[in-house]
Design a protein around this nucleic acid. Structure first.
Lengths: 263, 263
DNA sequence: GGAATAGTGTCTTTTAGACATTATCAA
DNA sequence: TTGATAATGTCTAAAAGACACTATTCC
């Protein structure tokens, strides 16, 4: 006996017009009627971006089950009962990606709900974008072959895509969001451990925007943008001279913006 | 007999580790097991913005049922079986807001899924932003007292909020998205019927950004931004002189951006 | 005439972008 | 020495922002 059937929301009598309008259906009250809504599962999928050796990377896990067995997928899972979407994303980031939620920036991207995106049933996935420094990761319960970082550019050029479901599209939109957010926020600093040099920060921008930046002009722009970075007064030997060290600034929204231009 | 219970996703045996990782649970195959996922309803809620008499307005409908009976809410409703999220939003825009989907810009905002946001059951709402010109609306099946436009600024200042659920927060984030999008896209033109004058366009920016703009500088910026507007060669009597008429340009992303500054 | 608006022109300040220069250290 | 990088300085072009001015029309 299956209590859930793929019917349209049920409406009845006097309440039909009101419920068509109020957006939350009126024919159940404090309890819910399981026949009143189509069966849907809600999951979160995490696009975890980091910069390794000057290249933008994304964390993927290998699928061991049908469908897309053997394909690579974004880590994710069910939103459990009583759990907020953000909390589910933070939990999956820790459990599946092995990244402590405190060391990463996590924000909602958008939701994906094409009816046929999962062949088993209707699944609406809330995609999240996580930005993390290139930490030595203590991946809990997964060996290196089942969860690892991939070069984003390589992934996007691969034909056919090795990604399961619509994760190729989600990845593309996540990367575009990250590129855009570097312009007007200080999120580039979340890819770095403190303290860092201006050149470290520049290499983050170069990796994510995908083209080289003019070192001198970049330095001037960063230092003239209030609140992006704060000097520590210390220096680090870089191999070729000494570089000043900085910490993250306190401003999250940049004025003026660091526009994504050629230089 | 209720087939849906509020349990965590079920896992079994060998598949437990894999399904904990692959994000889409592996213990059902081509069919779904209704006990394998928590019961959730997915709805869309539409923030329909328009500019009337120089003020930013939003379309709300009055709730006739529990909970929040008598409160005002964003139009919306269930995502039906087999229906894409975007399609559900377009359908609700037409059915509930009485706005033909062709005359509005519609884009996904983000999803809201706090466990207690609807007291009846778990509801994840995918919020959409709709931008429309101030059309004479043929609202189907709703009389003027049940669906009408509200001044956004008045709504946001009202204490306590007359909005149901978490719709106050959704509205706030929608308005901020609209403000931001006017900077780097030509979406301001979707608030206008063609043809329009530069002053018409300026009044849209002023209404949404909430402060006056310098007419001469605004004109120069708009005309020097490639692809924002296209001249029609015609003029319109405005009461004080004659104003050149324009159509929407073909470029959706503006270079340089029309930055949201004081002037 | 006075007030309001459309449209054009001009000037200053700020920012972007290109490029030169010096210092330091590795190979 | 040569090459690479950090840091600073300088110059030009583009854009933002402030303001002056003319023309038109309503009151």
């Amino acid at each position: 006996v299956t209590g859930v059937t793929a019917t349209q929301p049920r409406r009845s009598g006097d309440d039909a017009r009101a419920s068509a309008r109020d957006g939350h259906e009126g024919d159940f009250l404090d309890a819910y009627d399981p026949r009143a809504f189509p069966p849907v599962a809600v999951t979160v999928d995490i696009v975890t971006l980091t910069v390794r050796q000057g290249r933008l990377n994304v964390l993927l896990v290998r699928r061991g089950t049908h469908p897309f067995r053997g394909y690579w997928a974004l880590p994710g899972g069910f939103v459990t009962a009583g759990e907020d979407l953000d909390a589910a994303a933070a939990r999956e980031l820790t459990e599946e990606a092995g990244i402590p939620a405190t060391s990463a920036h996590l924000e909602q991207l958008r939701s994906y709900g094409a009816p046929d995106r999962d062949p088993r049933m209707r699944v609406v996935s809330v995609a999240y974008l996580a930005l993390a420094p290139d930490l030595p990761r203590p991946v809990a319960g997964t060996d290196a072959d089942d969860a690892r970082f991939f070069d984003v550019e390589d992934l996007q050029e691969a034909q056919p895509s090795p990604l399961a479901f619509d994760h190729h599209q989600i990845l593309t939109e996540a990367v575009e969001r990250a590129r855009s957010k570097l312009e007007y926020t200080n999120l580039a600093t979340t890819f770095l451990e403190e303290p860092f040099t201006i050149a470290d920060l520049r290499r983050i921008y170069e990796a994510i925007w995908g083209h080289p930046l003019h070192p001198a002009n970049f330095r001037r722009k960063v230092l003239s943008t209030p609140g992006l970075v704060a000097p520590t007064g210390q220096e680090r030997a870089t191999g070729r001279g000494w570089a000043d060290l900085y910490r993250r600034g306190t401003t999250t929204t940049l004025h003026p913006a660091l526009l994504r231009t050629r230089n």
